[in-house]
Amino acid sequence: MSLAKVTQVKGLALAVPGDDIDTDRIIPARFLRCVTFDGLGEHAFRDERTGPDGLERPHPMNSAQAARIAAAKQGVMVVGFNFGCGSSREHAPQSLWRFGFTAFVGGSFAEIFFGNSTTLGVPCLTLSKDDLAECDAFVRANPEVELTVDVQNLVVTAGAKSWKASIAASARDGLVNGKWDPIADLLEGAPAVDKTAGTLAYVVGK
């Protein structure tokens, strides 16, 4: 299985502020009533974007900038801390990815969300608190400037600005080498898997 090498993601950026944004907010549970991920993109942040009255609410995802990212199917979401906490639903990164986001930059990411995203080939890069604040402010003030998320060199740049970024070494390695989906490696280990299975009493039925 050959996958694209994700060394760099370039695109317009959208700031979605707030810490502890949970996956119930990213994709409300009612949209999990499905047997495929198709069509999830349009429901990303649905209840934040639309009020109970059915009217649009002020939310970054309703902005012209978000629409541009959706049209380009390419863009960077700049988020706060502990983004994607809560439910393990892969529907969350799937919906944002299908909407058009191809990278995340934030203060920190909940672990399951992080894993679910990188396995889609969508990098989640972390900036220091101060850098994130600066990046966030820059993105709001300069919506027309593209952000470059450089996974290879661990830096986020926009215009003349740049911020040092980080990501777990294993995730970076997978992205830049086109091995972000581990299935090929895992399948390759099959003989070793059988060997381990044989050493586990509960697996062999005791």
Binding site: R89, I183, L186, G189, A190, V193
Partner: peptide, 17 residues
């Protein structure tokens, strides 16, 4: 807890990365 792609990994290989 794991994501859906990882559910696939466990089904196919009984392992996770």
């Amino acid at each position: 807890g794991i994501g859906t792609t990882q559910v696939r990994d466990v089904l196919a290989t009984q392992t996770l990365a």
